[in-house]
Design a protein around this nucleic acid. Structure first.
Length: 827
RNA sequence: GCCCCGGUAUCCCAACCGGUAGAGGAAGCGGUCUCAAACACCGUCCAGUGUGGGUUCGAAUCCCACCCGGGGCACCA
């Protein structure tokens, strides 16, 4: 093929990218206008995608999120909303610190170099971000306000310090939040086995909002992806039950939490967590030796062992008896490790008849078992946890016998309350958020420890507390914070008494930084406050948030906590930060997660080089519903490129002039165009971007046909269709769309074009295919008017020769008519 | 063990309230173009919806049980 012919049938993707990038930069079409929103000139939409950590260049995962995110942000712009679409970097964190140790540099070197690399890549990727709002959490201008927020939370009693056994990662040499320890007891960052360590650390009081964090999930259920709501529910772990007070002889009253107060009559022994202080306190002198030996065994067992649910029960008698408040019976008190010290009160009433764990323990130590729920007849198990009438559950004042579980629960709770022996209550699995970290590259905790005054907050006018200059070997993990080595920095005068004092040497968990960044984007350059409440009021909450599943509980829960705390401080008026949340799937390869060890990594840069930005974006958006994983091995970026070339070719075939009235154009094609636009609106709004792309493909096919064998290239409907393709396509493939737009005789940018107005008249079909079934099986198809009446359709159906043959003279018992689409004849 | 989500052609995926199982793509096959090929274009093949029951005039869609895959929680009382 000659070069000329080639030029007419395809375009050079890289040349097109190089051509438009500077033009877009100049047009700067995606700047969010505060005034337009504040004045009410335009309705706001806040689109947010989780900002990246700057580790090297962007990868396939980033490419997917950004491609998906761009669809909705560009769509909203087209629909006339004023769109807030910011981007920045979550730039504090361990990888930079580890790189600094390795290369004997400062973490900032690694961090800011990577940010520049990623920024370049994002720009090349053609994303509609408002770059004027760019922020980095590691800038003093940002962490100034992270520190300020910490102090505000502390003022509210939502940040406090306590001594407690904490999760310790021996690899990263720092403590971890519960959320950062995986279900198998390993560190979510590095995979090392997490151990316990007793330390005094800072906490955010997330439990203060446990109930609200849980309750609000009901509303979020509608607009958040289901699995994340489910994960948060499980994580918060609300359970209803009761506190019941048992008198422990020789010790005093001890309260337990139970979800089954109805089984109280079956409580035949009492168990205290061996590692709880309570156990040591209760222990009788003659059992002390046995208890201490047992406790030592328990401490030696790792978390991994403890996590095994198939372990035989162990424990030791504490030499004391508790009194069952409903039976008055003396029941033995044991210490065991199957009871957790930090859940509920660290003690339980053991009801072996209705709880398998208690059953196992009772069998192991030959303790009595009483059933208090009548098992169903076919039951042949051990503990019976099912429903049934209560039995063996009466004393002189109260009888639960015959009652079903729920009724028995409320009856016994009422009785306990009247006696002052307990009360109905709710317990949560959620724990407070441990935020101290013994690492360098994070926001310093703005507290000064004074021997006389205690914890003293750094005065607000002295914020930010900037990090001291440490680099290379200074940063090596040694179990205490590297900041401690910066003696000049640590030693300060107490702001309260002026005496010698020391700075807190820990830094904050980087999840603190990201818990409020969506507020900072709204007034990113405000040097006087964390964010402008007026802007938060105007733009918040976030209307659409896209991110990864790995943050289902961590970041999303913390951000929700921050939002509620800020609301209670009067800084914002809404309850939840993210009105809608979607998490995208992963990009995998050949059925496996991409990894170096498997050697199946797909390099984004290589893909972009081979197929171009638009093809890669299109492939990722078209592959599947956003939340599903994409197996790159099943994808065809080459096919995407082929499609883009096909679409582009349309723009060169149009011969009518720009601005021609499409009204006189070919009605058949116009109907397709308008149908596609109407469908695209609905599909984007329900995040079914892959189907939206399929609709655009349909339109391209229809337009091609119209040009080659239909109304011809000069028909105004062809121009209308091609322009529509350009606009719709620009949400996914901005370069191709821009190129089309220009060839169609328009000024850049297609991003500033107006969304096609759907003509409802063109959505109406001339005829509809009505299906005639006999006994539910299709026997005939009739072309009928869309507004045909039930009676007319029934008459037409029964008159059809094929239908008459199918009925075969049998008696028609019933005719179901759903005009205009269906008739079902029942014989 | 408990809780979510999914299972549709060879593959990735569509199918509004229950109403013609197929929109789109990939691969395959056949053709046009070509000296030939690649590209491109045109055409075409392909499933009764994980399994078993139920409800219904009618089920991929609703209900029950089970199987498989993914995710969350898990000795949480």
């Amino acid at each position: 093929m000659s070069e000329q012919a080639e030029a007419a049938s395809s375009y050079d993707v890289h040349a097109v990218e190089a051509k438009w990038l500077p033009v877009w930069e100049q047009i700067d079409a995606f700047r969010a206008d505060d005034a337009a929103v504040v004045s009410g000139k335009r309705e706001k939409r806040y689109a947010l995608t989780m900002f990246p950590y700057p580790s090297g260049d962007l990868h396939m995962g980033h490419a997917e999120v950004f491609a998906l995110h761009d669809v909705i942000s560009r769509y909203w712009r087209f629909r006339g909303y004023e769109v807030m679409n910011p981007m920045g970097w979550d730039s504090f964190g361990l990888p930079a610190e580890n790189a600094a140790i390795r290369n004997d540099t400062h973490p900032a070197t690694y961090t800011y170099a990577n940010i520049e690399t990623q920024l370049e890549s994002m720009k090349r990727y053609g994303l509609a971000f408002d770059w004027s709002r760019r922020l980095h959490t590691s800038d003093p201008e940002y962490y100034h306000w992270t520190q300020w927020l910490f102090l505000k939370l502390r003022e509210q009693g939502l940040a406090y310090r306590k001594n407690s056994p904490v999760n310790w990662c021996p690899q990263d040499q720092t403590v971890l939040a519960n959320e950062q320890v995986l279900a198998d007891g390993t560190c979510e960052r590095c995979g090392a086995e997490v151990t316990k360590k007793e330390l005094t650390q800072w906490y955010f009081k997330t439990t203060h909002y446990a109930q609200e964090l849980y309750d609000c999930l009901d509303e979020l259920q509608e607009t958040w992806i289901g699995k994340v709501v489910n994960a948060q529910r499980n994580w918060i772990g609300r359970s209803e039950g009761a506190h019941v007070v048992f008198e422990v002889e020789g010790h005093g009253p001890v309260s337990v939490f139970t979800t089954r107060p109805d089984t109280l009559f079956g409580a035949t022994f009492f168990v205290v967590a061996a590692d709880a202080k309570l156990a040591a306190e209760i222990c009788a002198p003659e059992q002390r030796e046995a208890f201490d030996a047992y406790l030592e065994d328990v401490r030696k067992a790792s978390d991994i062992d403890r996590l095994s649910t198939e372990r035989p029960k162990t424990g030791v008698f504490l030499g004391r008896y508790a009194v069952n408040p409903v039976t008055g019976e003396r029941i033995p008190v044991w210490a065991a490790d199957y009871v957790l010290a930090d859940y509920g009160t660290g003690a339980i009433m053991a009801v072996p008849g209705q709880d398998q764990r208690d059953w196992d323990f009772a069998k192991a130590f030959d303790l009595p078992i009483v059933r208090t729920v009548q098992p169903s007849e076919d039951f042949d198990g051990e503990a019976y946890t099912g429903a049934g009438p209560a039995i063996n559950s009466a004393n002189d004042e109260i009888s639960l016998n015959g009652m079903h579980v729920e009724e028995a629960k409320s009856t016994v709770i009422a009785w306990l309350e009247s006696k002052g022996l307990g009360n109905g209550t709710v317990n949560f699995r959620l724990r407070d958020w441990l935020l101290s970290r013994q690492r360098y590259w994070g926001a310093p905790i703005p507290i000064i420890h004074c021997p006389d005054c205690g914890e003293v907050p750094v005065p607000e006018d002295q914020l930010p507390v900037e990090l001291p200059e440490l680099r290379g070997a200074d940063l090596k993990p040694k179990g205490t914070s590297p900041l401690g080595a910066a003696t000049d920095w640590v030693t300060v005068d107490c702001p309260s008494c002026g005496g010698p004092a020391q700075r807190d040497t820990d830094t904050m968990d980087t999840f603190v930084d990201s818990s409020w960044y969506f507020f900072r984007f709204l007034s990113p350059h405000d040097s006087a406050r964390a964010f402008d409440p007026a802007m938060a009021e105007a733009w918040g909450p976030v209307d659409f948030y896209l991110g990864g599943d790995e943050h289902a509980v961590l970041h999303l829960l913390y951000s929700r906590f921050f939002t509620k705390a800020l609301r209670d401080m009067g800084l914002i008026s809404w309850d939840e930060p993210f009105s809608a949340y979607l998490s995208q799937g992963k990009v995998i390869n050949n059925g496996r997660k991409m990894s170096k060890s498997l050697g199946n990594g797909v390099n984004l840069g290589d893909q972009l080089k081979e197929f171009g930005v638009d093809s890669v974006r299109l492939t990722l958006v078209f592959a599947s519903p956003p939340e599903d994983n994409i197996d790159w091995a099943d994808m065809s970026p080459a096919g995407s490129l082929r499609f883009l070339q096909r679409a582009w070719r349309l723009s060169g075939d149009v011969t009518s002039a720009a601005g021609v009235d499409p009204g006189a154009g070919d009605v058949a094609l116009r109907k397709v165009t308008h149908r596609v636009v109407a469908d695209a609106e609905q599909l984007v709004e329900s995040y079914r971007f892959n189907v939206m792309v399929a609709k655009v493909m349909e339109l391209v096919n229809a337009t091609r046909k119209a040009i080659d064998s239909g109304c011809g290239p000069e028909d105004p409907a062809v121009r209308e269709a091609a322009e529509t393709v350009a606009i719709l396509l620009s949400m996914v493939a901005p370069y191709t769309a821009e190129e089309m737009w220009e060839r169609l005789g328009h000024q850049p940018s297609v991003a500033q074009a107006s969304w096609p107005t759907v003509d409802p008249a063109l959505l109406v079909q001339d005829t509809v295919t009505a299906v005639v079934q006999v006994q539910g099986k299709v026997k005939a198809r009739l072309e009928v008017a869309p507004d045909i009446t039930d009676d007319d359709l029934e008459a037409a159906a029964l008159a059809d020769a094929d239908v008459v043959r199918a009925i075969d003279g049998r008696e028609v018992r019933r005719v179901v008519v759903r005009a205009p689409k269906l008739v079902n004849v029942v014989v």
